[in-house]
Write a protein that binds this DNA or RNA. Structure first.
Lengths: 204, 204
DNA sequence: ACCTGAACACCGTTCAAGT
DNA sequence: ACCTGAACACCGTTCAAGT
């Protein structure tokens, strides 16, 4: 087949299709991606350097899908920070199947700089020192990425042997939901605890 | 070659070798693992069901390497919880190359039940309710896994364009170490914030 | 510049054959 | 029961050839 008058592919479409495929299948295979895009696998290499760059494009697509004004930094910093964290995790939750591929690296790519800038300004304005801010952001991000992975974690199974040898574990599991609310509850309690702990660092 | 009088392989050795290889190479390939163990790749399938189970064995090996009394649950709960979290993350930090393979799922396997039991008892004794405990453990674990991944995160690069368009980000990055202390600081501040936030949930 | 189709090295897994 | 070696389907990537 000849070169089409208008290119069949571009990086944006590759990232979007890859995100959809990974979310559906739980893995990303180049042949499956090419099939979805209606091209030969080799065609992709005219637009990206390889599989790693495709995954980076998936992260970029995720960021693009997430509205940059999904959170309002003009509120009190506790609420703004909570909104940011929730919008960040919601973006992952929209593509659960792709989470293991996406959440294993922070979104350190350049297109994330605008988000970091907004959070850094928020925390500096709140009164945290320059040397405190990046650790706070990193800690929050670790918690968010870990919580995203928790969305697709296999449930803890309470076998009969567990019931005998681990009475306390059994007791607390009996009071823990087994559906999606399990991860929600953990995220909620952790997020609020982090913000409470952050506030304790501020001079009063 | 005939069947050896004493088996060349067992699950423990497979897990240990896989952990070492993944740590060294950053990826786990079955042929490389078999070569390291001095057998043909197909020999492995007499002991494990496949690649997934090998990764599970790696997690088990990690847990076995971590001394079960690496943390003392008889201290005040804040210190015990902190020690637990630190020993958990230290186990990952001992095999940084393998972290992306290991930290993407909580160690939900049965051999982790003893640890969960110990933490559940600790938190119940501290005064948390049965319905609070599992969310607290899950939140802590998400933070620990995220922090383990942060150990091998690519550094955020401050390009010149960043310096102009993101002044606050630039300012805080100038006050942030670029070596291993970056992840340490983030883990420390996050861990203490979480525990502070947890304590605020207790009746006084 | 952009795509195809053939080709390459490699991977995870299965299975018959050997003791 | 435990291992080998051949075999299979599949993967990511390269590259010459086509327009």
């Amino acid at each position: 087949m000849p070169r089409p008058r208008t290119p069949l592919l571009d990086r944006r479409r590759i990232g979007a299709a890859a995100l959809r495929i990974a979310d559906d299948q739980g893995v990303l295979a180049i042949p499956a991606l090419a099939r979805d895009l209606g091209v030969a696998p080799s065609a992709l290499y005219h637009h990206v350097s390889g599989r790693g760059e495709i995954i980076s494009l998936m992260r970029e697509e995720l960021a693009l899908e997430t509205s940059p004004d999904a959170w309002d930094s003009s509120q009190p910093w506790e609420q703004a920070l909570e909104e940011w964290a929730r919008s960040y995790r919601t973006a992952f939750a929209a593509h659960p199947g792709a989470v293991p591929l996406l959440a294993t690296a922070p979104l350190a790519e350049p297109f994330m700089h605008a988000m970091y800038e907004k959070v850094a300004e928020l925390l500096l304005t709140a009164g945290f020192t320059a040397s405190q801010v990046m650790p706070l952001i990193n800690a929050m991000e670790s918690f968010i990425l870990g919580s995203a992975l928790d969305l697709v974690a296999p449930p803890v199974m309470v076998s009969d042997v567990t019931r005998e040898t681990a009475p306390h574990l059994t007791a607390v599991l009996d009071d823990t939901p087994t559906d999606h609310r399990r991860a929600e509850l953990a995220f909620d309690v952790g997020l609020r605890a982090l913000i409470t702990g952050f506030r304790a660092l501020l001079p009063r």
